[in-house]
Design a protein around this nucleic acid. Structure first.
Lengths: 191, 191
DNA sequence: GATGGCACTTGACAAAAGGCAAGAAATTAA
DNA sequence: TTAATTTCTTGCCTTTTGTCAAGTGCCATC
């Protein structure tokens, strides 16, 4: 496990001595997914705290007309879990599904709490992840308020090109808050 | 301080024995604001963790054209602070300003950390607040994606009428992601 | 290499929202 | 109370985005 991507990820997030990081990282276990597999299905309780090393996932739910709305993507080198369900121990309203094959390291809710208990400074890691995702969500709200769909697309193009490369257009469209047709026209417009 | 709104708020958020709650609540100190006062100005570091007992605040920033964008409101019986700046100890990009006179109880960043240290279970309170705000932000993204401006307005009317009562229309408009003119027309349409 | 099913594009029209400016209404200050 | 300022409304026209439907291209697979 030494020098694994996970230990690097933890060390980048918070200052911790190497011995602790190794011990923490070794509590995580390898997990692999095939393209299209579900990390979480609605009505389940999100129980895995997952470091995504390779691959791409999305989270989606259904609107009142039964259409899938992709509300978020998870890219490499991020933690995947459904906050509401994971921390509040309630049934998830959303699905998390892989878009490509995925590899990473998982730990359960109970194991994470044990870790928080045994390594109090690791709590700061948990908080840092939470804060990071929260900030991302706030930026997304801001973008929805005062950017046009085209600007949002252009920004995504620059900041997360791996999404555009691997995800079907319809997922990206609903993530940007527009229809497939509009996104298709935006693309045409740019090229 | 016994049976103060703050102790009730804490007890509603997490299970804690009365003695601890009293001790925690007594670490907070009363703070009052006049209408229009700033709780936080951009470029400052958010240092107050504030339980808002009475009143209404908003957080705003400037877009590229120099227009104020109100990204969020803080209503009674909520914790007010700027996550990014408060937890990451960086300069805030946003302002938090009162819309009405406000009353509440504050604690500093250092005091909060001391409290987390002395009362480990109180950490769960901190996390619960963070999770709650995060969930609210995600719901907001979802609303921006698949609701019309009118639906978002109607929902706000039901869920947070105190905002509509006390906030100027232009703040609400940018919060909903539309212009004042459009919001004015939506209102007209409804009545 | 035909067939079916997605994924994506495109056209014609409709609906939603914005820009700008004038004016009414309300609030604040003098 | 009056004047000044801000807030809100409204009209006219433009831009953005949506809806629906048809059509193209690309795989998968049998």
């Amino acid at each position: 496990m030494k020098n694994s991507p996970l230990t690097k990820f933890i060390q980048k997030s918070i200052p911790l001595n190497k011995i602790d990081v190794e011990e923490i990282a070794s509590s995580f276990r390898l997990k692999e997914f095939k393209k299209g597999d579900y990390f979480l299905k609605e009505n389940q309780i999100s129980n895995d705290y997952f470091y995504l090393y390779k691959g791409l996932m999305r989270t989606y739910l259904y609107d009142l007309n039964g259409n899938q709305i992709t509300t978020d993507f998870f890219t490499e080198n991020n933690i995947v879990f459904e906050v509401t369900s994971f921390f509040n121990r309630v049934h998830s309203e959303t699905n998390i599904q892989t878009i490509t094959d995925c590899t990473g390291y998982r730990i359960s809710y109970e194991e994470l709490n044990t870790l928080f208990h045994n390594k109090p400074t690791f709590r700061d890691f948990g908080r840092a992840i939470l804060v990071k995702e929260f900030i991302a969500s706030k930026k997304r709200v801001y973008a929805m308020i005062n950017q046009t769909a085209e600007e949002r697309y252009q920004n995504l193009l620059v900041s997360k090109p791996e999404i555009l490369k691997n995800s079907p257009l319809k997922y990206i469209a609903s993530y940007l808050g527009i229809t497939d047709s509009t996104l298709s026209r935006i693309r045409q417009n740019i090229s």
